[in-house]
Simulated scan of single mutants.
Amino acid sequence: MDKTFRAFDPHQVLLLPPSLDDWLPEDHLARFVADLVDEVLDKIFRHAGTAGIAAPVG
């Protein structure tokens, strides 16, 4: 199995991607969309659990 590694960049400023919480203002549309998706997914999984349907893991 071949492994793929990212190239080494000694001038890389951040080790991990930054949090969008640090970059987006509180009233940004992306926050609304993220909250909406979370709510919809929660409802789907709750409904699946009460209907006896196994919810996907992951």
Rank of each mutant, 00 (worst) to 15 (best):
I44L: 13
F32H: 14
Q12K: 06
P56R: 03
A7P: 00
L29A: 11
P25K: 12
L24C: 07
A54G: 15
E26T: 06
V33A: 09
A34G: 13
F32E: 02
L29T: 12
L36Y: 01
T4G: 15
F8T: 07
L15P: 00
R46K: 12
M1W: 11
D35A: 09
L16S: 11
R6C: 15
W23L: 04
L29P: 15
R31F: 11
D35N: 04
T4R: 13
A55Q: 14
D9L: 08
E26A: 05
R31W: 05
V13I: 10
H47W: 08
D42T: 03
L14F: 15
I44F: 11
H47E: 07
E26S: 07
P18N: 14
V40D: 00
L41Y: 08
L14M: 10
G52Y: 14
W23E: 03
A51P: 00
L24E: 05
A48D: 05
V40T: 04
Q12E: 12
Q12T: 08
R46E: 03
D42I: 04
D38E: 12
K3S: 01
D22A: 02
R6W: 08
K43R: 14
P17S: 00
D21I: 06
V37E: 00
V13E: 00
A30W: 01
L16N: 12
H28T: 02
G52I: 12
A7W: 01
I53R: 10
